[in-house]
């Protein structure tokens, strides 16, 4: 059962990473314009260099 001492923290850590990613996405307003973001990825405008 010693494996539990490793696996439980690992699973909690991975879940925490997901939660942190969710918070970050929300803080940076990535859920404000889902339609726009889905379409922006199709434009070729900033393919060569990032938007300044």
């Amino acid at each position: 059962m010693e494996i539990l001492a490793i696996l439980i923290p690992v699973s909690l850590f991975l879940g925490g990473v997901g939660l942190a990613a969710f918070f970050w996405a929300m803080k940076t307003k990535q859920f404000d314009d889902p339609d726009g973001d889905a379409n922006r990825i199709l434009t070729k405008e900033w393919d060569d260099r990032p938007k300044p």
């Binding site: 879940g15 925490g16 997901g18 939660l19 969710f22 918070f23 929300m26 859920f31």
Partner: peptide, 16 residues
Amino acid sequence: RDLLMRLGVAFFSMMN
């Protein structure tokens, strides 16, 4: 956003 954040936390804990 506030509700969504609480929902996210509840989902994470529910799964674990």
